[in-house]
Design a protein around this nucleic acid. Structure first.
Length: 287
DNA sequence: ATGTCCACAACATGTGGA
């Protein structure tokens, strides 16, 4: 089973890239963030394209901002849009949806950005993460996969240059602690586990040729409970999708799971290499 | 002086967000 997560930065704008990607990678489950569409608009936009490819759709969107979804051809049951107990800003935002796909409880999340450390939005981010931890804990972290744009680089290894991010959100101790408390439920960061010490990013700012120079961050994660993590056969970031014309500023994250503890694995496609290169400090465009 | 993209309101381009 292949699970992918992708912050598409507007599904409407990304359709020319999204559908070919779907056909090339053929994930069984896709978690989307920043769809930026109301649910009806998403269905009208490409519901038929998804049905034609065998996907069921669970969407939780709003006009213009945020928006998450889960596409699945491995079952889609017990859909829960939103995040119980989460604060709003000031009103609840479309940042989470969960569904059961096969035996896995899949959460697609778009964590608040936080804007400036200690700002109201930063407090919102911390409170939202606490609610996410509680929801995953209640739903049972063993069978959980939490996918999405966490808007947190878990460690300094996950940014191209820690000095470039001093004083900025995504790297502060409090948000990293909130993420660690989520992972402490027993969730594994499957990409980092697969690529320890490697230069692996999922987001590159559109500005200043950041992608071309591989100056990015790893803020899009797939977190899996023990039984699921034990089935991971491959876990990687699909940098190809960040190249070319009209990309999102995020790349998809993909994990392949063995079908069952003693099931048939089948031929494996090796993930693309992630070259490890040291780069000099570079000034970051201010968010 | 953000090497950009996206959405909205509204119709030209400014504003806010990431």
């Amino acid at each position: 089973m292949r699970i992918a997560t992708w912050n598409v930065n507007s599904l409407k704008q990304r359709l020319p890239r999204f559908l070919p990607w779907l056909d090339e990678r053929r994930p069984d489950v896709v978690c989307l963030q920043e769809t930026k569409l109301p649910d009806q608009a998403l269905t009208e936009l490409f519901g038929d394209e998804l049905i034609g490819r065998g996907y069921q759709v669970a969407a939780h969107g709003e006009v213009a901002w945020n928006g998450v979804a889960i596409l699945s051809r491995a079952g889609l049951d017990d859909v829960v849009p939103g995040l119980a107990g989460a604060p709003g800003f000031p009103h609840p935002e479309a940042r989470a949806i969960a569904a059961t796909c096969g035996c896995i409880r899949v959460h697609s999340v778009y964590v608040p950005n936080g804007r400036e450390p200690d700002s109201d939005h930063y407090q919102y981010k911390l409170a939202w993460l606490a609610a996410l931890r509680d929801v995953v804990a209640a739903a049972g972290p063993e069978a959980a996969v939490v996918c999405g744009d966490m808007n947190i680089a878990p460690t300094d290894e996950d940014v191209f240059d820690p000095d470039a991010y001093i004083g900025q959100t995504h790297v502060t101790p409090r948000e990293r602690k909130a993420l660690a408390e989520l992972e402490a439920l027993g969730l594994h960061d499957v990409v980092r586990d697969r690529w320890p010490g490697e230069r692996v990013f999922s987001y590159w700012d559109y500005r200043a040729g950041m992608f071309h120079q591989d100056l990015g961050m790893r803020i899009d994660l797939i977190l899996a409970g023990d039984p699921v993590a034990a089935r991971v056969k491959a876990a990687w970031i699909d940098r190809q999708a960040r190249k070319g014309k009209g990309p999102s500023d995020h790349a998809p994250v993909i994990v392949d799971l063995d079908e069952a503890p003693d099931g048939d694995i089948g031929p494996m496609v090796p993930p693309p290499s992630n070259p490890v290169t040291k780069r000099g400090a570079k000034k970051l465009p201010q968010a």
